[in-house]
Design a protein around this nucleic acid. Sequence first.
DNA 1: CTGTTAGCGCGTTCAC
DNA 2: GTGAACGCGCTAACAG
Lengths: 368, 368
Amino acid sequence: MTVTLADVAARARVSPATVSRVLNGNYPVATSTRERVLRAVDDLDYVLNGPASSLAAATSDLIGILVNDIADPFFGIMAGAAQTEIGGPGDGSGRAGGEKLAVVCNTGGSPARELTYLTLLQRQRAAAVVLTGGAVEDPAHQAAMSAKLAKLADAGTRVVLCGRPPLPDGESVLAALAFDNRGGGRRLTEHLISLGHRRIGYAAGPLERTTTRHRLEGHRDAMRAAGLYEDGGAAGDGRPAHAGDEERLTVHGSYDRSSGYDATVELLRREPGITAVVAANDTVALGAAAAIRDRGLRIPEDISVAGFDDLPFSVDVVPALTTVRLPLFEAGARAGRLAMGKETPPPGGIATIPAELMVRGSTAVPRG
Amino acid sequence: MTVTLADVAARARVSPATVSRVLNGNYPVATSTRERVLRAVDDLDYVLNGPASSLAAATSDLIGILVNDIADPFFGIMAGAAQTEIGGPGDGSGRAGGEKLAVVCNTGGSPARELTYLTLLQRQRAAAVVLTGGAVEDPAHQAAMSAKLAKLADAGTRVVLCGRPPLPDGESVLAALAFDNRGGGRRLTEHLISLGHRRIGYAAGPLERTTTRHRLEGHRDAMRAAGLYEDGGAAGDGRPAHAGDEERLTVHGSYDRSSGYDATVELLRREPGITAVVAANDTVALGAAAAIRDRGLRIPEDISVAGFDDLPFSVDVVPALTTVRLPLFEAGARAGRLAMGKETPPPGGIATIPAELMVRGSTAVPRG
DNA sequence: CTGTTAGCGCGTTCAC
DNA sequence: GTGAACGCGCTAACAG
């Protein structure tokens, strides 16, 4: 039924070992025999048996790329870039010699599925694993992840982090490419403050996510540095009492549009006087903008809106979104090369990817 | 070094076969021994060797999902939905018993890479393959694809098409879920015509793609039915000569924003009098809208714009985009179930997924 | 319900 | 430069 290496060997009048050597190209083989073998391969439409090959060689050509949400271009861009570096163009011959199989796995943001996927990849003896996007900060999950990644690394799997901060115990990670979420968040809010905004709402991402926390911390750093959080002690001295400003001006949700909408409605309810809303990312900003418009307010005349990531659509919304650009494609490509062993890891295994402020039409000087 | 099934068997004081049975859950095993085995598995942190298992069983738990562009939510939504059905929630135990490994492969729209990925999946003895999105219509590639899919099916791989028309020779395909691109395209243009539009430009997708062709054909059907293409013979009878209207009012590009921008600039150059632009999809429509605005024209007062797919952002652009809704998530989920063998294929293996017109603010009665 | 016995198809020593 | 033999770790018959 299914044609095996032995069949090819018989047809080419060589030993199975020789066919194996031709296919893997790791040993010297006479040109004439190589041609004979390749012809036999084509004649028989032979396709290597991956499991058998992996079993004998104790390695596979699988490379897994984990993403939190495959429907979000934030991950799609990184994953696509990584695959570009891993998959090669393919020669269309259908032979696929020596190609790696770059596959992306969608965790949906669930810690359990993240671990399950890692186990599945471990089971396949994956050559490499790329983890993209923010990590969940639950201690139990972090410990489980560290343990799992250590085991993967032990088995020879290269582990690369892309857009995710390094692990506390990062021994098993080949390289961590971390985005400067904190710096980007800080500069974005500084921009708003420099325009004259003082009451700024923040539509944050889900709790216990590194990305959420770092962006929010950057924002709060800027707010505090400008003295814009007026808390507890201020009461009674004539200034308005803003007990718990930090908390009151922040609403958490998920990284999607409707969450941005809801958060903005809530922010406006808590503090009708805000003149700007900063969103956890561009998608959330879209929802924030919709909420503001539905309320009959104009952007940016009445309220400024800002996002994060600079996804392709951000330049197309009206007005175009002020945001923080992350070089997603470049980072993903680099992660792919790292996973392939085509690039040497940064010193210490850690690189911080800069974030660039992109000022567009959705932010302006506040009214009044 | 690496712990094997035999180690687990020794520790649990049973035979390797029993361990295998417990792990695969396919044969009856006494509860007490099962527990003993599972404890040994946990104690030893044992992870099944996938390649060895696949080799012995002649099947693997890999399921491949091919997409044309992983950064495009059109594909991300379908792929994510399929993975939901395939992957299960994962129990987080790290044991991952009997789970399938749903992986998405990004072809980037390249026929060569599509074939390469199929070969790689064939090599892995994938349990199923889901092909999403439009197919390339080049005859040579179609033949190669048919042959490859037949071989996959022969080897026991379930082949499912999602958002792609059935193959001419569809014997090897378990099920084909095709979107009603033609009907959707026709109804969209009929909507514009009913508003009073007569000169309508079309920013089409790439040539030789089924999706492109079907949507365009639907559009042209509506145009022709309304007598809006005035060609050759009309010259000299007092009506304006519109030689080759069909071609002149169509500009092809890729399925991205900048392509929509460029196409619209070209359409306006060829025919400044158009009152509406129909785009191949929502992303292209975004670019079209940008071109129109950059020209100082208003949407929809001066020019109406329409898209296709109804991606999540379409409701957020201003004005909200009139488009054709495709049930991407539902279709992807169904494809996933089909790939898992959890759902019986439609009669004849072919199902047409309806497309629903969504009228929003970007289309209106033409000026004048 | 459980143990025993054979391979699954290939990579990799070794010899030649 | 090439062939022969062995074993990778597991599942699938069979017995019992």
